[in-house]
Amino acid sequence: MAAEELKTGPLEYRTQEGQMGIMGFWIFLGAEVVLFATLFATYAVLFGRTADAPLPSELFEPGIVLIMTFLLLTSSFTCGLAIHEMRRGSVKGLIFWMAITLALGLGFLGFEIYEFVHYAHEGATLQSSAFWSAFFVLAGTHGLHVTLGIGWAILLLIQIKQRGLTNVTSRKFFIISLYWHFLDVIWIFIFTSVYLIGMVI
């Protein structure tokens, strides 16, 4: 626990605590990759096992999923802008772009909930077949991560209001930005390997 503080470089990297926190989070993301990889593998193995439930090609539609993809990818961009503002030392810019990021994330969630309800009405639920179990758990785990991320970011926004930019608050924002970009990457895989493939097969 070195208490020494560097005088230059990004705020979040100036203390050893900051560096260790960020490294720990990178390793955690490694574990998250394995978690999602297992869910993707499960989905791939159970692909086509729809039993009496509808086929994915009957339900998946390009429109809504494209909107969701657009929202989430844009939110990743605005999240990057928020961190850029943070590095420039602008609390205002950080809060502004982070708020937009969260709004886009909420939009994504809204569409996902609508989509799930719609599928359930068409007879595809968690219980209806192995394929749909895998689909709902894979997409649902991603959605749960987005939800947690939004809640977490709101807590951080309160803290930045209270404390301004410090080594600690900037580390927290940097880490949540890593998390947010990671969810974006996972979504790209869900979009391609679940929705795009599901639409054509």
Binding site: L46, L126, A130, W132, S133
Partner: peptide, 11 residues
Amino acid sequence: SQFFTLTGEGL
């Protein structure tokens, strides 16, 4: 859900 069940085409 039906991941490991004998119904619903679980494995």
